[in-house]
Write a protein that binds this DNA or RNA. Structure first.
Lengths: 344, 344
DNA sequence: CCTCCTCTTGGAACCGGTTTCAGACCGGAT
DNA sequence: ATCCGGTCTGAAACCGGTTCCAAGAGGAGG
């Protein structure tokens, strides 16, 4: 068996020449079109086998104006939950003829490059943007290109999206703590997004509402924001726990930040939940193992549903522009408990 | 501002027409080539802005025979460690002009499609195959296409690779248990790979060697294999812990499986490490939090190094075909302890 | 004033496929 | 024998870029 010389690939013309037919016929055979005489088809198939030919997908894409690929853009460094969402996407896409490509948009730079690659619509037939609010300019471009796009865990006025009611979630978590008797409740909040256009979509708001309804005064010193990185949250938590009037409970706007809080408490010898209650948000896989009380949002389901909507859009059907809200659920485990009596 | 009509994109010819120049000149401006009169350049840039033009990357790829994209193929459902490796890859690629695209190859079907997309070499300029042993046929095709490719956590005789010495790792873990006085040591092993061509690369082998050296007889009932999924491991562990002569220690070939074992123990009310020692393999992020004793392999580093080698290959330099072995390290935390005296 | 050289520029070929369109071929009916 | 319809087939246009190459413009030097 003679291997092909390195780097040289057979082209459709080579196959045609070898089979003694035109390129159009080879193309017809490749794509399973009717109206090719069996004898001819066999000659072509033979030539394909002999030359170890495989069509160039790039050339194919250019010609067809279609890639059969769906792009998913997500920041998966700070966001372990994003990975879980992608699993849902994969699930939602299985059975469809589309393939998924994942692109990391952790840094500003990578985000720009990702959009440059995808927003014209010739790299992928559809886009899923996960856990990121895309810049207006890009949304404009995506829509101008007629590129179907669904936001998963994000919102934009001119793109369909899958999201959760963060205000309700924030309130749910805070109310749980209040019901346990806590009054000194700190918040390690969402990172402040650079282009926040929708302030109502915020767990911090839910926290504030719950406190207000319970008649608890908001203490600015208890409200902190930072990135989702665990060690950042740990630092913030350490500061909160060093306050003269130490909080008896912490609501972290993500499980990752809750873990950072737990680590800070452990380092300071503060017992959970006896001396400190901690509640997270997301219910990532680890949470159940560690026993973290949290507000569960359907991560996997959000991806699955996003994929579903995208497939619908790709098939030409209209998709509602309003955000589709997925249900939240309080999951009580072992990191929250009654407020310590000394603090009541 | 008049938005472009949906789905219609300006082409380079439109820009050329609008600027009153030839397409070649537009291309020169786009690619920053010298020898374009400033006045002409400005006219072209103006036209580009007016038409909101962006070149088609697909057409560009076809013409240049180059994509500036690196593909990473990995099974990331069963393998949380693979995600960490990809982070290393992203890190290793940062600063390079290449973009990364991640493709899931969890199922047989997706693996086939992934290779179909990539093995011709026109989708990506280079390939990183993570935690998978690629089929011979595909390796042949990849090499025939002259497509640079590095294996991360995998081996193949005709591809460069980054790996760890699994036999040594298996022995390291088992020896640790033996040194703690354990004699009844069970194994929840690597999933049996379908096309195993290199039996020496196996944590099970290290386990067997360590037992042999300590003069401990191998008990077939203690040696189990299964997929890496947590719940599968939990089931297997439950069976092991129900044996008449219950093992006092379990070596799980991955942290995920170790977690499954811990869950099974907890469900049965077996205290860790007093009644049962558990050691894992990988040291994924969660391990440190949970306090799992494990054999750390440099996950992030493996990706970073793989990217590094791939970049070297892409720059035309030769890359050694021998597997590059990364160091392993025993990390003792709180899930292993002395063998219970009743069992000695 | 003519020649030569350099700087710009556009036409056209090319990357590797798909598809339109027109023509060749064939059997059957008139 | 002629006409007709359907089946098969290949040349050529097209997708949207890059680049080779030839040619025009303009300045320097003889």
């Amino acid at each position: 068996m003679e291997p092909l010389s390195t780097g040289t690939q057979a082209r459709i013309a080579d196959v045609a020449a070898r089979a003694g037919v035109g390129v159009a016929t080879v193309s017809r055979v490749l794509n399973g079109h009717a109206n090719v005489r069996p004898a001819t088809r066999d000659r072509v198939l033979d030539a394909i086998r002999t030359l170890n030919y495989r069509p160039s997908s790039v050339a194919r894409n250019l010609s067809l104006q279609r890639t059969m690929v769906i792009g998913a853009l997500l920041p998966w460094f700070t966001n372990p939950s994003a990975v879980q969402r992608v699993r849902g996407i994969v699930d939602g896409l299985s059975g469809s003829p589309y393939d998924l490509m994942v692109f990391d948009i952790e840094s500003e730079d990578r985000q720009r490059r990702a959009f440059e690659l995808f927003d014209r619509g010739d790299r992928a037939d559809g886009l899923l943007i996960v856990s990121t609010n895309p810049p207006d300019l890009e949304v404009e471009r995506i829509n101008a290109a007629g590129l179907p796009c669904i936001l998963v865990d994000g919102v934009h006025s001119s793109l369909p999206s899958i999201a959760v009611d963060d205000v309700a979630g924030g309130e749910m978590a805070t109310r749980h703590l209040i019901e346990l008797g806590h009054r000194r409740i700190a918040l390690i909040g969402d990172p402040p997004p650079e282009f926040r256009f929708d302030w109502s979509r915020d767990r911090t708001r839910g926290y504030e509402q719950a406190l207000a309804r319970a008649g608890i005064e908001l203490r600015p010193a208890y409200v902190r924001e930072g990135t989702r990185l665990l060690h950042v949250a740990r630092g913030i938590a350490a500061e909160l726990l060093a306050l003269p009037e130490r909080p008896t409970a912490v609501f972290a706007a993500s499980d990752t930040q809750a873990f950072g809080t737990l680590e800070a408490a452990r380092a300071l010898g503060i017992r959970v939940p006896e001396e400190l209650s901690v509640i997270g948000f997301d219910d990532i896989e680890v949470a159940s193992y560690v026993g973290l009380t949290t507000v569960r949002q359907p991560l996997f389901e959000s991806g699955r549903r996003g994929a579903e909507l995208l497939l619908r859009a790709l098939s030409g059907r209209q998709v509602d522009l309003r955000a589709e809200l997925l249900p939240l659920e309080l999951v009580v485990r072992s990191t929250t408990g009654p407020a310590p009596s000394s603090a009541v």
